[in-house]
Amino acid sequence: MKIDKSLKFVILYLLIVILFYQYNLKEAKGAEPVSDAESPYHVSIKNFPAFELPALKNESEKSYLGHTETGNFNIGQIKAKVLIIELFSFYCPHCQRAAPKVNELYQEMQKQDAIKEKIKIIGIGVGNSDYEVNSFKNTYQIPFPLFPDKSMGIFKLLQARSTPTFIGIKVNENGSLEQFYLREGGFDDIQKFLAEIIKLSGMESGDKNEQTKK
């Protein structure tokens, strides 16, 4: 198969254009922390701040998070190996669009016995009052606990930039917290999202180690 000179030139030109285009897109994405070649959402932040949340409102929330005491509590007290934190706002149309999908994620997590007790999810309403967080919960029938961050103190502490943002935290046995996931914006594929959380948290290898010990 012979390719004449002019065609070679055209191919070369197009390849350069494609490479240039791809390079520019990566540059434009900019500040997204990329520390894992396989996932743009992988981050590794040791000593994640163990911030406080307002008291849980009812027994089902207490039972889900495995925290029975009354009053404010620390996220490190949540009974889970992995905690997914959704930063949302009642006022943000993207969070409104994402809400049914996040509900589906919760339902899927509840269905899978292997992860049901290990991965938990909470939502934090950035700049929202308790009233607004409750309105959001009622509008979208959100089954997992939501907390207000009226003064945006948590949002600032986590140095977040927009909503919705999904943060993945590993709760280590010594009580320390480690962030391994950061996603700005919603997601379409629940299974893919969940698989990525499981993989990047190292839960799978942790389970294998536990089994070997036994």
């Binding site: 009642f90 006022y91 943000c92 409104q96 309105s135």
Partner: peptide
């Protein structure tokens, strides 16, 4: 840009 989207889901109110 987000004040009205909040009202948009508060029609019941």
């Amino acid at each position: 840009s987000d004040q009205w989207p909040g009202y948009n889901i508060s029609r019941d109110l």
